[in-house]
């Protein structure tokens, strides 16, 4: 149903998740969701649910690894941490994103085209 939406999000969602895990270390799903909401000042209307299939996909790709552990309030939670190939992916994704942003910026700022 909401497939189109998640498809669009997939690319950037992975980038956000990987960056969060890189800076904050191992984190559970809810923690990641909250962090995204905080970082985007709740501007991005994220259906928290869409996060989980994305996480599974990233696990399948080998970018994150998982481990069950205790949460801050002593509940069993699944923790995600970034792997080596996840870091590599993050680096190349980030570079991609910057290049893309630079290109888009030229169009947004028409004065520079000539």
């Amino acid at each position: 149903m909401s497939k189109d939406k998640t498809d669009v999000l997939h690319g950037s969602l992975a980038l956000m998740v990987l960056r969060i895990l890189e800076t904050l270390g191992p984190l559970h799903g809810w923690g990641i969701a909250r962090r995204i909401e905080q970082m985007t000042d709740n501007v991005l209307e994220l259906n928290q649910g869409t996060l989980y299939p994305a996480l599974l996909r990233m696990e399948q790709m080998g970018w994150v690894s998982t481990k069950w552990g205790e949460s801050e309030n002593n509940r069993r939670a699944k923790f995600y941490s970034i792997t080596r190939s996840g870091r590599k992916q993050l680096a190349s994704e980030a570079a991609n994103w910057e290049r893309m942003a630079a290109i888009i910026a030229r169009f947004v700022n028409p004065g520079e085209i000539s």
């Binding site: 149903m1 909401s2 497939k3 259906n47 928290q48 649910g49 869409t50 989980y52 299939p53 599974l56």
Partner: peptide, 11 residues
């Protein structure tokens, strides 16, 4: 969270 059932289905 969004649709719980849908999420599970996609998952």
């Amino acid at each position: 969270f969004g649709g719980l059932a849908q999420t599970k289905e996609i998952y």
